[in-house]
Design a protein around this nucleic acid. Structure first.
Lengths: 336, 336
DNA sequence: CCAGACAATCGAAGCGCTTCGACTCGCCGG
DNA sequence: CCGGCGAGTCGAAGCGCTTCGATTGTCTGG
C-alpha cells in the first residue's frame, strides 16, 4: 500500500505539497505538479479513504436509504438508486446502500459515525419516523418523496397532484365522463405514502372541475386481485369508459381483462397509466402514460445534496412537472 | 461530536479501556464495562468510522458492483442487492453501491483506497475484464455468476446447467417430445453471460439424454419480439408442445399469444419458466418454474465474503441447486 | 511464603492524511 | 536600495481510533 509520504519522497517534495497537488487548495508550480503527478502514476498511489475522512472530516460518501420491501415499485427504486450512484460519482461521491430495515437507527448510526456526509431517503411516508432524527441531528439530507411537514427539509418528488390532474384532464378532454382509478395496494394508502394520496387529490380536484365522475379503488395488483377490482368497478359504474392505473402490477392484468371482456382499447375504453416509461412502452398495448422520472429524481436529489454539502443552500422542495405522453391506449370516449 | 477520549474521561478510565470494551479484544471487569457502557449511552457516543478505518485498516464496508443496465433482470438484481445489504448488516458491514459504469476502474479505486474490505460483483461475464485486476490486487471478492475461468475466485450462482436439465426433465417426464426454448435477448448471448449459456447446455444435454427435440431461439422480450419468435418457432416445429422461457419480458407476451391462438395452457401446451418466484406466481397463469433464488444468492455471497475476511478460507464455487415448482402451466403432453 | 500465571488496566506509538502557520525567494514600487 | 507582497514550499500538529507492550494486583501451586 503506497502512502502519501512515499509519493512525496519519490517526487522529492514534502508530504503537504503532494496533498496540495491532490486537492488544489494552494497554488503549486507547474513543474512540481508534474513531478508529483508522475510519481503518483508510477507508484500507483491511491489516497487512503479512512485517513482522508479522519483528517478532513469528510467521507465523500452519500448514504442512500432504500425501502426494504421488494414487492413494490422495484424498477423505479432501482432506477433511482442507479441514477443516484452514477450522479454521485460525477461529483466525487460514493454511495452507501442502507435498507429501510434499520429504520431510524440507521440515521443515528450514519450521522453519528461520520460514515457519510449526507443522506438521501427514499419512500418517505407522510409522517416518517426518521424525520425528527434528521432534523435534530442536522444531518444534511434530501428526501425523495414528500412528507406532511416539509419544514426545514429538502425534498425532491414528482408533482403527483399535477400528475393526477393531468390524467383526468386528458380523459376529460377526450369526452370521458366516468373514470375509474385503479390505485395502489391498500397498504400503501394505510401507510400514508404521500405520493398515492397526492395523486388522488389531483385526480379528484380536477375531476370536480371538469365534471368527471371519479371512482377510486385500491388494488393489490396481480391477476386475481385486479379482476376483482375491475369487476367491482364495472358493477358500480357500468358506464366507465376511462381508467387511470397507478399500480404497475395491475397494468397488464387490466389490459388482459378488458380484452377478455371484449372491450377494445382505446375504442371502447381508454387507459392512462402512471408508471415508468419502460412499462408503458412494453405493455401489450402501448400505454398513454405519465412517466415516473426515476432517473431525474435520483439526479436531482444528489445535486441538491451536493449543493448543501458545498454550503450552497438551495431550494427546499423541488416538484418535477409531470409529462403525459399520448400513446395507443387512449382515445375519444365512445358515443352512446 | 463525542469522542472516545471524552467517554473515557466521563467513565474515569483510559481511552484504550473504552476501546477494549467496544471491541471485546481483551478482558474487562464487569464493573468497568458497565461504567463505560453507561457513559457511552449517556453521551450518545458513536465511534468515528474514518478513525476506526485508519487505525485498524478495516472499513467494515463491502462494495457491491451492480450492472448499469437497468433494462434486464431488474427485480432479481434489486432483490440480490437488498439481500446483500441486510445480510451484510447482520455481520457488521455496510454496503457501498458501485455501478458497472466505472468498470474495472472501480475495482482499482476501491482496492487502492481501502474504501471497502472486499467486494461482490454481480452480472459477471464469462470473460470479465474486472477479473484480472481482482486477481492481481488480491482484493477479497465474491462473484455472483460464473466466469469461464474460476481459478482463484470465489463464486456463487444458481446451478444453471442443472436448471436447464430440470426443465427438460420435467417436460420429458410429462411426455413432451418437442420443446422450444425462448431465451434471453441475443445481446445476452453475445456478451457471453455465463448463466444463459450454461442453461442452454443443461437443456441440450438432458434433451439428448431423454430424446427430446429442442429448439432454442433468443428473444428480445416485449410483445412484438416475442410474437415474432413464437410464430417462427411454430412454423419450424408445429408439433411443439412444451416451452421453456428464460426471459422475464417474454413470459406474459408468450402466455397472451398462446391464448390468442387458442392453445390452452396446460392442456395443449406446457410452459416452464426460469424466473423469480414472484413473476411465476403473478403471471396470468400460475407458472411451473425454476425460481431464481435471488435472496439466497445475495446472502451466500456475503457469507462467503465475510468468511474470507475473517480468514476462514472457504469453498471456491458454490452452485445453488435449482428447485422446480409445479404450478398450473404444465401438464401431460396432449395425445395425438 | 514465593515464583509464576493470569486478569485488568494504562500509556504511548502510530494509522495516512489535511491544514495552518511559517519560511524562502524573486520582484515591485517608492 | 529596502520594505512588502505573493507564489511556492515545508514542518508539524493533529484528526479519533486501535494495539502493543508494560504495569499492577490477585491467585495458585509447590
Amino acid at each position: 500500500m503506497v502512502t502519501l509520504a512515499e509519493v512525496a519522497q519519490h517526487a522529492g517534495v514534502s508530504a503537504s505539497t503532494v496533498s496540495y497537488v491532490l486537492s488544489g487548495k494552494r497554488s503549486i508550480s507547474a513543474t512540481t505538479r508534474q513531478r508529483v503527478e508522475r510519481s503518483i502514476r508510477e507508484l500507483g498511489y491511491h489516497p487512503n479513504a479512512g485517513a482522508r475522512a479522519l483528517a478532513s472530516s469528510r467521507s465523500n460518501i452519500i448514504a442512500l436509504m432504500v425501502p426494504l420491501r421488494t414487492d413494490i415499485y422495484v424498477p423505479v427504486m432501482m432506477e433511482i438508486a442507479i441514477a443516484v450512484a452514477t450522479t454521485a460519482r460525477t461529483h466525487g461521491y460514493d454511495v452507501l446502500l442502507l435498507t429501510g430495515e434499520e429504520g431510524p437507527d440507521a440515521v443515528r448510526r450514519v450521522a453519528g459515525s461520520g460514515l457519510a456526509d449526507g443522506m438521501i431517503l427514499m419512500d418517505v411516508e407522510l409522517d416518517d419516523e426518521r424525520l425528527p432524527l434528521l432534523r435534530e441531528s442536522a444531518q444534511p439530507a434530501v428526501l425523495i418523496g414528500l412528507p406532511a411537514d416539509t419544514g426545514g427539509l429538502t425534498c425532491v418528488d414528482l408533482d403527483f397532484r399535477a400528475t393526477g390532474a393531468l390524467c383526468v384532464e386528458h380523459l376529460a378532454g377526450l369526452g370521458h365522463r366516468d373514470v375509474a382509478v385503479i390505485g395502489e395496494a391498500p397498504a400503501v394508502y394505510e401507510r400514508h405514502t404521500g405520493f398515492a394520496e397526492r395523486t388522488l387529490d389531483g385526480l379528484r380536484s380536477r375531476a370536480r372541475e371538469t365534471g368527471v365522475r371519479l371512482l377510486h379503488r385500491p388494488c393489490e395488483g396481480g391477476y386475481d386481485a385486479t379482476a376483482a377490482t375491475v369487476s367491482r368497478i364495472l358493477d358500480e359504474r357500468p358506464d366507465t369508459t376511462g381508467f387511470v392505473v397507478q399500480n404497475e402490477a395491475a397494468v397488464e392484468p387490466l389490459l388482459a381483462l378488458l380484452r377478455q371482456q371484449g372491450r377494445a382499447v382505446p375504442e371502447d375504453v381508454s387507459v392512462v397509466a402512471v408508471c415508468p416509461e419502460q412499462v408503458a412502452v412494453q405493455a401489450s398495448v402501448r400505454l398513454t402514460s405519465v412517466s415516473l422520472p426515476a432517473q431525474e429524481m435520483g439526479r436531482h436529489a444528489v445535486e441538491q445534496l451536493v449543493a448543501k454539502l458545498d454550503g450552497r443552500g438551495d431550494a427546499e422542495v423541488v416538484l418535477l412537472p409531470p409529462a403525459l405522453t399520448v400513446r395507443a391506449s387512449s382515445g375519444p370516449a365512445p358515443v352512446r
